[in-house]
């Protein structure tokens, strides 16, 4: 890797109470990469993702050691709200606020101090376009967001994240509740976003990881077993455990 990694973790250990969920994770993610993270349930994928923008700290028993660097800077030096503005997350199930489509997307910019109506409208339109949702909702921005289909809601969540202007987007099994066509649309959106964002995709679906990601990491029981270019990882896995998982012998 030539360029400086956008995200780098050094000896990252994560705990919930006394239970260690992640062990010594060392990862580097360069700009504009889509990194896939695969692994069975309870392998620590989601915890890793939520460690990056400190959402894990919403649990009172959570603690971590080691370092997470964003553009070479320790994230502990960045305030929670600025960090989460820079590192957005898309949750597993589409989670929309019980307000209109417009207000869902405008919420982020508003809390970051954008009050000008025209600026807001432009930001919302831009975000919805980038999330491939604009054409489907442009005539009904005032409608409740909950009336959208699951796939549309998930793209609305992506638009909502884009609207605050992040640098990194995390996806926590974003398509686990979606049908194949909606899944394809979300994946399309991810490909289009590659030019401007660094993306990390946690997925239970190894096929999705192989379709979307450039590099892929395999987590197992809190350890990073293997990481490499997606094609190589799926064709010539270096570790026997990776091989077992991707060929479906367990997990």
């Amino acid at each position: 890797m030539v360029s400086e990694p956008v995200i780098k973790t050094v000896h990252l250990d994560c705990f919930f109470g006394a239970h260690q969920v992640l062990r010594n994770i060392n990862l580097e993610i360069p700009a504009n990469e889509i990194l896939g993270i695969i692994g069975p349930a309870n392998s620590g994928k989601t915890t890793f993702l939520r460690a990056l923008n400190r959402l894990n700290y919403l649990h009172r028993t959570y603690s971590q050691s080691g370092e997470i660097l964003l553009d070479g800077r320790d994230i502990r030096q960045i305030s929670d709200n600025l960090l989460r503005k820079k590192i957005g997350i898309i949750f597993a199930l589409p989670q929309v606020l019980p307000v209109s489509i417009l207000d869902n997307v405008a919420y982020g910019p508003k809390v970051h101090g954008v009050t000008n109506k025209e600026t807001l409208a432009r930001t919302v339109e831009e975000a919805l376009k980038r999330a491939y949702l604009w054409e489907e909702v442009k005539d009904r921005l005032q409608e409740p967001a909950v009336r959208l289909s699951g796939g549309q809601q998930q793209r609305l969540c992506i638009a909502r994240t884009l609207a605050v202007g992040p640098q990194v987007i995390l996806y926590d099994e974003p398509c686990s509740g979606l049908d194949p066509i909606s899944t394809a649309k979300v994946e399309d959106a991810m490909q289009q976003l590659k030019a401007d964002y660094t993306q990390i995709l946690v997925t239970n679906n190894t096929k999705q990881a192989s379709r979307v990601s450039e590099r892929c990491a395999f987590f197992l029981m809190g350890e990073l077993v293997e990481i490499g270019p997606t094609h190589d990882l799926f064709t010539y896995p270096q570790d026997k455990r990776t091989d077992d998982y991707i060929t479906g012998r367990f997990g």
Binding site: N53, L55, D80, N81, Q95, Y107, G108, V111
Partner: peptide, 25 residues
């Protein structure tokens, strides 16, 4: 809880979250 999580994940402060995503409901 998801309302709070959405709001916080977008970088809202705790008070903004309570003010705009919890109290109204």
């Amino acid at each position: 809880l998801t309302y709070r999580e959405i709001s916080l994940s977008l970088g809202a402060t705790k008070w903004q979250t309570i003010r705009y995503c919890v109290l109204p409901y």
